[in-house]
Amino acid sequence: MIEAYKNFWKDSFSFRGRTERKTFWPAMFVHLILLAVLLNFYHFFTTLNTLYLPLFWQALGTFCIYLFGIYIVVSFLPYLAITVRRLRDADFPWALIFLNLVFLVGPLVLLGLNLVPSSSKRVNDESTENRNTVFNKKIEERNKISFSQALAHYFQGYFSFGGRSSRRSFWFVQFCWWGIFALLKMLVFLAPHFDWLLFGQVSIGTSLMKLFLILFLLGTILPQFALMTRRLRDAGLSEIGSLILLTTSTSLLLFQKILSRTLSQAYVGHRYDLVEYLLFLFLGVVLIALIIACLSKADELRTSEKSILFNKMD
C-alpha cells in the first residue's frame, strides 16, 4: 500500500502507460484517508471547547485546513495522471477524466469505472507503470559542478525528486534564488514610491511587482523542494529522514505565520508568549538541522547501519 502511494507521487507527470486496479486502489485509499484525517483534525480543533489557549487551537484548526487545501492542489495532477492510466488499463477513453467536472456525481461515477478489471486488449509490451522520462529524469551530481551546470540541472530536475544534488550545486542555486528574491522584494518596496512620483498615487507598477514576486515564488516551490530532497539524499539522509525534515520545517513555518496572524487580530496580552517562544525555539532547531544537512558533504551523514533517518554506508 505504501509502495503504491509512493508511485502515486513518482508518476505524477506520467499520463502514458497503464495502472492496474491492484495498484490504483491502495494508492487512492491512502490518498482519501489523508484527506479525511485533515478534515477531521480541522473539525476537532475548531470545535474544541476549552478556555485554555483557545486561540492556539483555533490557529491549529486553520493550519489543518491550509494543509488540506495545499494537499488538494499539489495532489491534483498526480490524481489525474493515475486516473488516466487506470482508465486506459480498463480500456476506457481517457476523456472520461472530465467527469470530475460534474459536481459530486462525476467523481463517484469515475471511481466506479476504476473498479473495472484490466482489459484483455492490453498491449503486452506496454508496462503497467510507464514513467515519463522527461519529468522524472534523475539528476546525479557526483563530480565538480559549475554555476551554469547547477542552474541547468535545477531546471532539468524541475519535477525530479530522485537522484542526488551536490553541495556546491545546491548552494549555487540557493544564492541565485535568494538574490532574485531579494531583488524582487526591493522592487516591491520601491514600486509605490515610484508610482507616487510618476502618477501621484499607487498604480499598476506596484501591482505588477507584487505579481512578479508571487509568480516567482509559486514557480519555484516545487523545484526548490526537489532540489532539497536530492541534496539531503546526497548528504546521507534516507527518504523518510528527508521527508520528516522538510515537512516539519515547512509545517512549523506555516503554523507560526498562522498563529502570529491569529494573535495579532485579538488582544491577548502576554498569555501566549511561552507558546510563541517554544514554537520559535522548535522551529529554530529544525531549521538549523536542515541547514547543517544541506551544508554536509556527500554521504557525510551516512551511518554504519541503515536506520530510519539515515542511509547506510556503501
Rank of each mutant, 00 (worst) to 15 (best):
K6E: 07
N7Q: 15
W9Q: 05
K10S: 09
T19I: 05
F24S: 02
A27M: 00
F29K: 10
I33A: 14
V37Y: 04
H43R: 13
T46D: 06
L48P: 03
L55W: 09
L60Q: 07
I65Q: 06
Y66A: 15
Y66M: 14
G69P: 07
I72D: 03
V74I: 14
P78I: 02
P78C: 02
A81D: 00
V84Q: 01
R86Y: 03
L87M: 04
D91I: 02
L99T: 01
G106M: 06
S119H: 04
S120I: 14
R122V: 14
R122K: 13
N136A: 15
K138Q: 11
E140P: 07
E140W: 14
I145T: 15
S146I: 09
S146F: 08
Q149F: 05
F155T: 07
Y158V: 04
Y158Q: 02
S160Y: 01
R168M: 13
V173H: 00
F175P: 06
F175Y: 13
W177S: 12
W177G: 03
W178H: 14
G179M: 02
L190K: 10
F194N: 03
L198P: 06
Q201D: 12
I204L: 13
G205C: 03
G205K: 06
M209I: 03
L213T: 08
G219D: 09
T220E: 08
T220G: 01
A226N: 01
L227G: 00
L227H: 07
T229M: 06
L232F: 12
R233N: 11
L243D: 09
T247R: 11
T250N: 11
L253E: 08
L254Q: 05
K257H: 11
I258Y: 00
R261I: 15
T262D: 05
Q265E: 13
V268E: 02
Y272E: 01
Y277L: 12
L281V: 09
A289F: 10
A289Q: 09
I292E: 11
A293Y: 01
A298N: 12
T303E: 08
T303Q: 15
L309E: 03
M313K: 15
